[in-house]
Amino acid sequence: MSIALATHELVKNFGGLRATDHVSLTIHTGARHALIGPNGAGKTTLINLLTGVLTPSQGTIMLEGTNITRLSQHARVQRGLVRTFQINQLFADMSPLQSLCLAVSERHQQGRDWWHVAGSNKSFVDEAEDILTRFGLSDVMMQQTRFLPYGKQRLLEIALAIACKPRVLLLDEPAAGVPEEERHEIIDILADLPKDVTVVLIEHDMDLVFSFADRISVLVNGALLTEGGVDEIARDPQVRAVYLGESGHE
């Protein structure tokens, strides 16, 4: 099986704090890989390192066999490494349609087009609208993003990533803050992701993790505690002590 994403001895120090501690991770193509760990374990930091938001203090990152450790954020996106954010990062004064059209245009290398009106390429608009419809956002696609309800913004957060046609998709707590009764929308979308897309999911909801993932890595204090199949991790007493115990008091 080919390897989609791998890190080797990745380290990130914030002053005296080691937020990522020699993490060597291998994620196979098409995997449904969950990354779990208590709050502050360094999950988001790891995503930031993988996507180029942060530069590692040490170590390397390989995407489909290429060393991307020094590549810029946007260059990684163009290679198919795309993420969502734990805290919504949206274009507040743009509409969902504009945001999606822009993402689609960028993917087609048309983001520098300064001559044609944005949206004049009908196939881009169609593609954007397609995604919005799939995400149940078509009724609000012309509204300003800042006025959308939180649940819709959360969906848009994922839709924007999908518009980049990811080969490897990193989802940072996609259901965070979404009320129980709206969670199924997100769960359905995760289930519908194309099988050839490699997905790394950070999530606190254990039911979601166990139903979605085929492999789980556990991160504690910046370091990998253990890694294995779903049953293996569910049974692991160490994991239960460190993580499942901790999540109980949330």
Binding site: T51, G52, V53, S72, Q73, H74, V77, V82, R83, F85, Q89, L90, F91, A92, D93, M94, Q98, S99, C101, L102, A103, S105, E106, Q110, G111, R112, D113, W114, W115, H116, V117, A118, L160, A161, A163, C164
Partner: peptide, 20 residues
């Protein structure tokens, strides 16, 4: 233009702009 829209995106949220 699309370039203009991308500028708005950069101004609005540079982190997300990079992420798309």
């Amino acid at each position: 233009s699309t370039f203009g829209l991308s500028l708005r995106a950069v101004k609005g949220n540079i982190l997300r702009a990079g992420a798309i």
